[in-house]
Design a protein around this nucleic acid. Structure first.
Lengths: 219, 219
DNA sequence: CATTAATAACTGACCAGCCAGTTATTTACA
DNA sequence: TGTAAATAACTGGCTGGTCAGTTATTAATG
């Protein structure tokens, strides 16, 4: 409030057409996470971004377009770096997998990044275009890479002959549910919510299995 | 349309105060799944339930109360039967776990049941009371049972000494993500989306691990 | 005909998107 | 360089439509 005095008789606004879209997206992300898309008014976004409502419409044709821009900006870099990790074509695929899982886990647990899938998940039903975009830009690009990594792992004798496509779900599911439990329901393991511990345990179960060495086979 | 002729000069409505709440909930569930809570109008619910909007308000004090009633009615029975499964206190815990996972997977893949967690997940942010209820009635009751089953498995030498709380995420995560991928993004494995195959593969990875017997240890 | 389930018309709040007008910044020219 | 005209950025109030919730009235049922 008083800190505004930095510019006592300063101008009422600044012209910053370069920075505006990002400022709007930053504000929108915060609000969508706090209250959801439907409950967020365009005017709220504008206020938090330090502009007026009209300005939002200078840069985005609609409220939905703000959401779309948000997803595009926030999620593509992550998908790209995950793909880059997976793309390593030599070495034990399990190590590549482990590295990529660690990376993905760390990204997801960053609230500003992990928030985006959460928002997508919520709005997808009333905004099918968003689902399609997310699928096309993220899922359809990452899942196949992951599948072929598993296929190579099996072919080269590093992994048991599992179904690669279904195993993808065993790999990413635990990460996602961990974030959901923590961020949505406030359910945090006793040891704290450092994602590192979760990832370590997950990798241990994933590669080593849950059964004890001496225990009888089940099946 | 024409089939309405079954009651040609019948009464304009029936008085059925017993059946009305369930009829309203059925209609609401369908619509919430189709379009989400925010985009569903109370009048839509009423129309699909075959009553007028006012009637909805005879049985539910608000739109949110409809959602809450829906969750309460749909999800408690599932939680209870899962808990019942887990409660078996003797025998190989891995078999009990496997049985409960199969049961949960089947329930989740029933659209009318699996839809509810999906709706909860979407509305939780703008409706914290719902999150709290779901947490209290479902998660806080099921997760501890699962944790203690794993603890017993470890204590009795059936399972490796993993972190039980974190391992819960490795157990349910894949099921949830499978349903989300299928229902939200339309991503279905080539082999079809029969949940049985997913569960078989998941159990195999979960208990046996992903590493091939001959492969070098990673760690 | 008394009771109450159910209807249908109504109200008031809310908000996305629009746009007429205002202000900051740049450009043209002296 | 100083200044006025031109332009681009921004504001904020308005409007039309939507919809949750209310209420006056009607109709079914015992």
């Amino acid at each position: 409030m008083v800190s505004e005095r930095a510019k006592p008789s300063g101008p009422k606004f600044r012209r910053r057409s370069e920075a505006r879209p990002d400022e709007v997206l930053d504000a929108a992300l915060e609000l969508f996470v706090e209250k959801g898309f439907a409950a967020t008014r365009v005017e709220d976004i504008a206020t938090r971004a330090g502009v007026s409502k009209g300005t939002v419409y200078l840069y985005f044709p609609s409220k939905e377009a703000v959401l779309e821009g948000l997803v595009r900006r926030g999620v593509l870099p992550v998908a790209n770096s995950v793909i880059e990790q997976f793309a390593k074509v030599s070495g034990d695929p399990r190590l590549i997998l482990a590295g990529a899982i660690r990376m993905l886990g760390n990204r997801l647990s960053d609230p500003m990044i992990g928030a985006i899938p959460k928002v997508v998940l919520r709005e997808v039903v009333s905004f099918p275009q968003l689902a399609e975009m997310y699928r096309r830009e993220v899922l359809d690009r990452t899942i196949p890479v992951l599948v072929s990594l598993i296929e190579r792992g099996i072919a080269e004798g590093y992994m048991r002959p599992v179904d690669p496509e279904l195993t993808v779900r065993s790999i990413v599911g635990p990460l996602v549910i961990h974030v959901v439990l923590a961020q949505v329901f406030g359910i945090v393991p006793k040891g704290g919510m450092e994602i590192e511990a979760l990832i370590d345990n997950h990798l241990s179960v994933l590669f080593g299995g849950l059964s004890a060495p001496g225990a009888p086979d089940i099946g």
